[in-house]
Write a protein that binds this DNA or RNA. Structure first.
Lengths: 145, 145
DNA sequence: ATAATATATGTGCAGAATGTCGATAACGGC
DNA sequence: GCCGTTATCGACATTCTGCACATATATTAT
């Protein structure tokens, strides 16, 4: 969320998108549910869930994976086969699978909360509760300056 | 998100529900769009959007309102009419109205990201990618102990 | 040879967001 | 005077996130 005077200035593309807290975690868990993989590969595959390339920081991915491992929700082994530096390959544990289920439940709840909010907004606006046009124009002028 | 060993222990009712960052802000803005009001009243009316009474701390509401005011998205005046302590009555500004619109756009995007994720999960599970029952039972035993 | 690039995994820090606890204060009823 | 309700706010701690940077190996280009 943009801060300071002139909130529009900080609405950079991709940044500050209203997001779900720690959303990367369930994404990683789902990817790992499809099969073991390593951080760098997961980083690429996160795009599938709407993480734009520019907006994902690799350190967040690695940090998240290590955190999951410290909670025994994934395990890791080193893979030195093939070229390039060694890769830490993660595998989902049964506990991690249950944890993913917990996330899914919470996210479904979040979706229903979100739906109700957006419906309430549309309902409210449908009734003609708009800010008068002349006031809006005034604001547009102030914001763009 | 539950931390530490045994993630289930910290899944207290209402707490740690996967949520949208700063979601209280658009809720307050929408409530104020329906008409000026004061913090204590808004605190009550937040229930409408799924904020359970036990999980909302009043200080969070007041902090959010003062933050909005510092960004000129709402204004406030003191109301000393009626009994009890004075109430700070907030009004949405045209800038605040625009800001609400920005939130709505972002939340719609969030909803579509969430939908895609949940669909991907269901799609994946539909194909029989379950953790074998005997392993699950094993986990259930470990978790409940 | 060596320089640059791609792959791969991290640490440290600052600032933002959130949670918890309690202080303050006015008013009404006893 | 004391207590419960209404009402607002400060202070502190913790958690989350993004940014900058550090490290190391293998491949390709010069």
């Amino acid at each position: 969320m943009p801060r300071g005077r002139g909130w529009r200035r900080r609405c950079r593309a991709g940044a500050w998108v209203q997001r779900i807290s720690r959303f990367m975690e369930p994404c990683l868990l789902l990817l790992l549910h499809r099969g073991g993989s390593h951080g760098y590969d997961l980083l690429e595959r996160l795009k599938e869930f709407g993480f734009a390339e520019e907006t994902v920081d690799s350190s967040v991915v690695y940090r998240s994976l290590r955190d999951l491992e410290s909670r025994a929700l994934v395990t890791s082994t080193w893979d030195t086969e093939g070229g390039g530096p060694a890769r830490r390959v993660y595998q989902l544990t049964p506990e991690g699978d249950q944890y993913l289920g917990w996330w899914i439940g919470g996210l479904r709840e979040t979706r229903s909360v979100l739906d109700r909010f957006l419906q309430a907004y549309e309902e409210h606006m449908k009734l003609g509760n708009h800010v008068p046009d002349e006031r809006m124009a005034e604001v547009d002028h102030r914001i763009s300056s």
